[in-house]
Each structure stands twice: as structure tokens, then as C-alpha cells.
Design a protein around this nucleic acid. Sequence first.
RNA 1: GCCGCUGUGGUGGAAUUGGCAGACACCCGGGACUUAAAAUCCCGUGGGAGCAAUCCCGUACCGGUUCAAGUCCGGUCAGCGGCACCA
Length: 803
Amino acid sequence: MEYQFQKIEKKWQDNWYKNNTFRAKDDYTMPKFYGLVEFPYPSGHGLHVGHPRSYTALDIVARKRRLEGYNVLYPIGWDAFGLPTENFAIANKIHPKKVTADNVANFKRQLQSIGFSFDWTREINTTDAAYYKWTQWIFLKLFEKGLAYKQEMPINFCTSCKVGLANEEVVNGVCERCGSEVVRRNKSQWMLKITEYAQRLIDDLDDLNYIEKVKTQQKNWIGRSEGAEVEFKISGTDEKVTVYTTRPDTLFGATYMVLSPEHPYVEKFKDMIKNYDEAVAYRENAAKKSEFERTELAKEKTGVCLNGLFAVNPVNEKEIPIFISDYVLMSYGTGAIMAVPAHDDRDWDFAKKFALPIIEVVAGGEDVQKAAYTDTDSGKMVNSGFLDGMEVKEAIAAIRDFLEEKGIGKKKVNYKLRDWVFSRQRYWGEPIPLVHCDKCGWVALPESELPLTLPEVDNYEPTDNGESPLSKIEDWVNTTCPKCGGHAVRETDTMPQWAGSSWYFLRYIDPGNNDAPASAEAINYWMPVDWYNGGMEHTTLHLLYSRFWHKFLYDIGVVNTPEPYQKRTSHGMILGENNEKMSKSRGNVVNPDDIVNDFGADTFRTYEMFIGAFDQATPWSMNGVKGCYRFMERVWNLQEILSDEEGYSADLENTMHKTIKKVSEDIERMKFNTAIATLMALINDFYKKGSVTRGELRTFLLLLNPTAPHITEEMWENAGFGGNLNEAKWPEYDEAKTIDASVEVVVQLNGKVKGKIVVPAGLDRDGLGEAALAEEVVKNLLEGKTVVKTICVPDKLVNFVVK
RNA sequence: GCCGCUGUGGUGGAAUUGGCAGACACCCGGGACUUAAAAUCCCGUGGGAGCAAUCCCGUACCGGUUCAAGUCCGGUCAGCGGCACCA
């Protein structure tokens, strides 16, 4: 019998999709499992081999959970708004709606050809008005609660194309398309106050089962720091500048101050600044740079001394000069710092460049004239008045108290996290459902007017002034104010792609609901997501944004849990055969369709899981695919050596129990590669024995089914095990039968392996030592030597330390 | 630059808590089958020395802790992901 994968796979896929086999049940009495994968952006390039890595992994978990008796929700949808679609639409004169529909159809065909057990009855699309109605609704709730506000924020503007650009479209400071200069231009934009949730976004990580590196990345991104705000008087005025510092202990070493070039005091004191023109020129130059460029530590420090303006150090009344420099950002802290060159690397570089004094206030390092001493764990305060002689930590506490007592400063917690810029000057996004009325200001559309649909237009090309394409559609822009009935204009910016993906997991739960994002009963049953897998590239932004929205929805009573995802894991990237990132330009892209056509979905799925450690980046290998195809054939050919015997054969009984245990545990730990290796080893045992019993085959098929669902269903049917495999029970093992009667133990002399002995399993330390000494091999090894110490590790080894 | 991760045979990787380094595959070499080839099956396969038993070396590099280090600690180098308007 030949292995005809095309026929088998088509047969079972038709069966599953026609019968909605993997539909999640609305039976809220069953134990539930909600498995989630990041829904794809349906790009024109089609599915990447990276998508199925994540999708197969959770498909395996989902299929295993169903066999274990859970009501499983494993959904999929389309994160379909976004820049590439819009750019493709403009370039090819095809409406983005049409581009999206075509791409979705292609993605869906591809995903179905791989046999994922998605519940297709719950498919969602962020660009459907019925979906984004609720994205808009959530935005209005945020607006209502004061968490959305307008602020001037810079956008990238191409001086030649006259359009706003995404950061990605700016390459080395010039426009990706035309190569012209890109400037940063301020524009009033909608912002979301994610910073208000900063502390909760840190604290609530504690109870979640996220892989550790994801928690660390989230915490570092939020960037909590404890420090102090200190007020410095401006000489000859009654005004004060507030600086933020994490090292208030070094206040006596502050020898100058640096303001961000955009700091309002530059304007405020323009009359006192003798070189104001120079300062303005510097500020304009800084505006061209991205924050990334500005804060790069390696670059040469630049800045301008504000001549005529001085600050007074509040602890020693010394006058210090004030600079502006682009490494100080308005968006962090107060936009002003006190510079302590002796104990901060950036300040040190700056001080050297501008020949500013460097005063040591923490002793213990090398000469501070040669390098900054930044260690806070050792060292004592010097040149610091009343702080002298204290440890750094003591000094921090003492100075904070001092500042508060004197009313010149206070303790302050800061976060690196910044508010979320929520406006995009684009067509292909959710319209922001607000209007501006001259009388009433910004007014929300009433809920009854949602969804505010994207106007269907032929011309969605950018304007030449950096405004959204929507601003050109006058009969859409001009409207009436819902509050006063007077004339009003619509907000023409749209939402970022992050919006739709910040709550999509809720929509899957109840995708057709027209009265709420999802019903309370459905949310209570299904939430939180039990297991969410996605890429490390989404660890900071998407994960944080969606946690923020979920917490907000929790606060207003829409959801029942403060966190959306109970468990978060990540997969590594699949690289090209040459070990580089797959890309068209590198010519190393693998199309999943080719693999499915040539080797079948089961081989493809198995290879995707066998390719390497799940959380690590790994290169693709066509030879590896062939190896997995060979494995599938060996699986198929088990039917040739199938005996009539039920149960397990005596010589493989322990192996069967061990294999069930190993595969079950490996799937839970996402060690899919070793789970498959274990099944390969088992099949090698079957062939060595020359036959496989019905019981052995039955268990083998169940264990392989989540990975290779088509071939196993077919063989299950052929063997007449009854019903469909997907309705069977996941096999169980007997712990007692996974333990062998005797074990091989290593004998070492001074840590080097010298021999092996076989002893009964389960001996304790003393018993193992005695058993070892009784062995002839060991006696020979120890002859003429003095045993100083014996180390025994039960079932593992005996190490004699000898002289 | 900052934050996070990774580094093991010719290749992908395995080694769950510090306890036999290299499971399972791929490639390659040899053999069987075949007129021949492909496919399949069997054997070999970290490096070095030796007829052999066996011995020495070996987990990016330098150093440390330990009876014992791929695993823990300090430092160095290299690669990858993210850096807020790609998603």
C-alpha cells in the first residue's frame, strides 16, 4: 500500500471542515482550554514558513487537550489593516479592501491545506466594520475616561514626496522611496495614557506564567526607576528648573546642567541667553534626528552652552552653567538633568568635550579624570558636605530626606514607558470616531452611530501636507456636532494597526455579538486565554498594548480578569538555508505551498516541529524535510508489519509507558523536537522487532496525531480502532512501568569515567556505594589506591576520590 | 549605544535539578538488492594516537567555584531579536 498523502490529506481536511469538527462548544459546564496564536497580517507574499511554527505548536497542544476531554477554543483571524496593504494598493491602483480580501483568501487556503484545527466558524477580520465597531467603542470608552488626549508629537515628513512616513520607511535619515531628506514635523496627535497603568503592568506580571525573558523585557521596557526631583534656582530670577535624577547622592558633584533643546525655558529666558540664535539653530538640527540617533551612546556629544544663564546647585549654592544637548529628551523625566561627570558616562563624555570640571563625590574607583565611576555597591561619599563618609545607598536615603525637609526636592518614581501615539495619517485604518466642534471641542460620536465606517472612495492617496487622505473627503469630513447640532469636522487620522490586535482575543469568544465586544457569560467562561504563543518581536509593544487595554476593560467592568493571558511562550524565527533572515531580496524564501504539495502537510508540520529547539532561531533545511518524509513513510509502512495481537508486547511494554510519559511531558514543555525524536526511536524499535501489535500501533497513532493528524486518522480507520481518532482518549501511562528493574551506573575515579556497573534501580547513597565496592571492576580500579571520599548519586554514578 | 537572547561534531540539534557530552535526524563513507540508477534496507561516522585492549583532547575564548561544569560565577569575542509610525 502506497503512502498517498495528497489523497489522505484532502480526505480528512474535507471531513473536518465540512463537519466543523474543531468547533468550540458553547457548553460552559465543560473544562475549557483557550489556546491563542498571533493572528497573521495577510500580506501579499502569502504565508511565511514562520507562521506555521507557532500555529503547529499550539495546534498540537489544542489537539492533545481535545483528546484529554477539554472544550477547546483555538481560533484564527486576520489583522488586516496596515501600511503594506495601503502602499500596495496605491502602487497598483487596487483598492485596499480588494487587496485585503484577496490576501485573506490566499492565507486561508494555505492555512487549511496544513490541516490546523482552527475553529473557522469564529474567523474574524479587524477591517470588518462589525469588528472595528468595537475597536472604536473601546477607544470612545478610553476617551470618556480621560485616557485619550491630544498632543503635539513629531511625525517623519518627506520633503520631496510631501507625505508622513513610518519609521520603517526612513532609512539612514532619508526617504526609502525617493532618497530625499526626511524632517521631523510636529503634529497634534491622539495619545493614550498607557503610563497611567505602568505600575500595574509591572506588578501583575508576578502571577502570570510568562517565560522569564518576556517578563524581563516587559519590565525593562516600562523601565521603572526610583530617584528624586530636585529644584535648581535660575540665577538672578525667581524661577526654578526641576531635574530628575536617579543619583541624588551625587548632587554635590553636579558641575553643570543640561536641558533638552525643546525645553520651554529656552524660550522663556530667550532675553537672557546671549547666544539664543545658536541655541535655536541647534534645536532645529536636533529635530531632524530620531530619538534613537539622539541617545546613541557611542556618538560624539554635541550641545550649546546657554551663555548668560546659570543655575544654582541647592546644596552648595554654587553657580553652574546650563547647556542644551540632544541626548536629553523632553519625553523622559523633566527634560532636564543635573550633570555629574564623575559618576555618569554620558555626562563624563560631555564634560571632557566641553572642558567642564569633574568633581569626585564617590571615592573607591579609579581616577575620575580618566573615566566615570558608576558603581553604586561600593565606595564612600566625599566632597559632599554632610554626606561625607556614607555608603552610596545611605547617602541616597539621607539626601532624599534632606531635599524634602528643605522643600527643594522630592522622591520620585519615573518610567521610561511613554504614552502611546495613537494617530496615523493614513487611509487603511479604523476611523477615530470623534468630531471637532468649534463650540464644544472634541466630541465623541454616540454609540448608536458606530461603526463609523471608512468612506468608500477611489482616491486614498496621501495628501501633500502630511494630513490623512481622509481629510480630502469633504462631504465626510464636514458633519454636525452630536452635542449642539452645529457644524463640526471629523477627526481624519486613523488608528494604528495595534488597535485591532489589542482586544481580538475577546472577539473570538463571541464573534457575532452586536451588542458588546463579547457577552459577559462567554467572557466569564473562556477568559483568560490559557496559553498564548507568539514571536519575541511582539514582546514589548503588542503584548503591552493589549495588556493595557485589557486592564482598562477590567476597570470599566467589561472583562472579568485583570490580565488577558495566563501563559505566554515564544517561538524562534525560521531562517533561510544560508542562516540569514528569509527575504525576497536574499532569494532564500521557502513557500509552504511547495512543501505541502511535494511532501504533504504531515511532513511539513512534523519538520516545522523537528527543525530545532522551539524557542530558538533555526535555519531551514530541505534535507531535514526529506528526513521527516522518510519518517512518515516508515509510519505508513507499520501497516505491513501489524500483528493481530492486542496490548503491548512484553519486550516493549516499559518502552511504551516511557514513551507516553516522555511525549506527554515534552508537548507541555514545548520540546516538540524531542517528542518526535522519541517517536522515531520507538518506530525504530518496532522495525527491529519486526512487528507491531495493535495496542502498540494504537498508542503510537494517538501520540503522533497532534503532530501529523491526517496520516494517523487514516491509519486509525484502516486498523479499525473504531470511530475517528480525534474522538479518542489521550493514552495514559503507568509510572511503575516506566522504571526499569536495574540501571547502569557510571564509576568515576576523581571525576573521570573509568567503568560502568549494573545495579538494582532505586538504591540509596549507602546502598549504591556498597553495591559498587562489591563489583569486581571497581575492586580492580581501586587496587593500590586510597579512597579519600566517595560520592554516590542514586541511579546515576559513583565517584571515588582517590590518592 | 541601550534592553533581551544565543554560541555544543561536516549540519540541525539532545543532555528536565551541576552527575556517562553528541539522543534523534541530516550529510558523508562502506555494503546488500538492481543490467544500471533511484528508492529501500544494513553497517560506520567528534578529533587525534594505536593491530588492539586502551589512552589523550574536546561544548566560542580567558579565568574561577566544585569530588564533578555544556550547565554556576567574573571577564572577552561573535551572531540574532527589539528600540515606540513594519507588524
